[in-house]
């Protein structure tokens, strides 16, 4: 028995470890593996390969991405039924889809959806937010994040839809960088920019 890890296995594992790190330490930026010069869907496809297979389901409004995710064997489903949502860009009209995303139920809150959102980190025009909850160290630099390209309404929607322990979990993705926002993270919008 000689353990040999294939390149695909190694990439899946590295992607998963980045997601696990990001979800364990909300606000802290983690790096996803892969080619930083690749096309803009690449990180979403890589996450799809790491998490999806024929035992789960996805939704994305992006046709090209949908075709690529289908190759994992996962079932393309409507927003209410899909376990994983992928939004390379989150437009205002996508909020109706997120509104339908499963938040699980009291017996099985783990059935709540996971939502991947493309955005930009750290740009001066971005919305500044204060995070708190499990994994967030008070007063630490990563407890404040600045995010642009996400409709402001999304944050209100998130606060409204999450009734902990029910809710959905989110990953914010900027190129190779990822920030995890589990449902347990409280997000407070700040009136002024972080920096």
């Amino acid at each position: 028995m000689r353990p040999t890890q294939t390149a695909t296995e190694a990439a899946s594992r590295a992607t998963f470890l980045a997601l696990m790190g990001a979800l364990s330490r909300p606000g802290m930026i983690h790096s996803l593996p892969g080619d930083p010069q690749g096309d803009e869907l690449r990180t979403f496809v890589a996450i799809g390969k790491a998490l999806l297979d024929l035992e789960t389901s996805y939704y994305t409004p992006e046709a090209l991405l949908s075709r690529k995710l289908a190759l994992t064997g996962a079932k393309g489903r409507n927003p209410a039924q899909a376990a994983y949502h992928f939004y390379p860009h989150l437009y205002a009209e996508d909020l109706t889809a997120i509104e339908q995303a499963s938040v699980g139920d009291y017996l099985y809150p783990d059935r709540g959806a996971t939502v991947m959102i493309g955005c930009r980190f750290g740009e001066r025009a971005g919305q500044c937010m204060q995070l708190s909850g499990p994994g967030v160290l008070n007063q630490s630099p990563e407890s404040r994040i600045q995010v642009s390209d996400v409709p402001l309404e999304f944050w209100r929607q998130r606060a409204r839809r999450i009734h902990y322990p029910m809710g959905f979990d989110a990953y914010l993705i900027d190129g190779q960088k990822v920030i995890g926002l589990p449902r347990s993270t409280k997000v407070e919008l700040e009136a002024v920019p972080c920096m």
Partner: peptide
């Protein structure tokens, strides 16, 4: 590699992420 096939690992990984999002559940 690591004994479990990729399907098994992916399932475990999906569940681990949910577990982290729901501490103690």
């Amino acid at each position: 590699y690591a004994f479990l096939d990729e399907f098994a690992k992916r399932e475990l990984r999906r569940r681990i992420l949910k577990a982290i999002a729901l501490p103690g559940y």
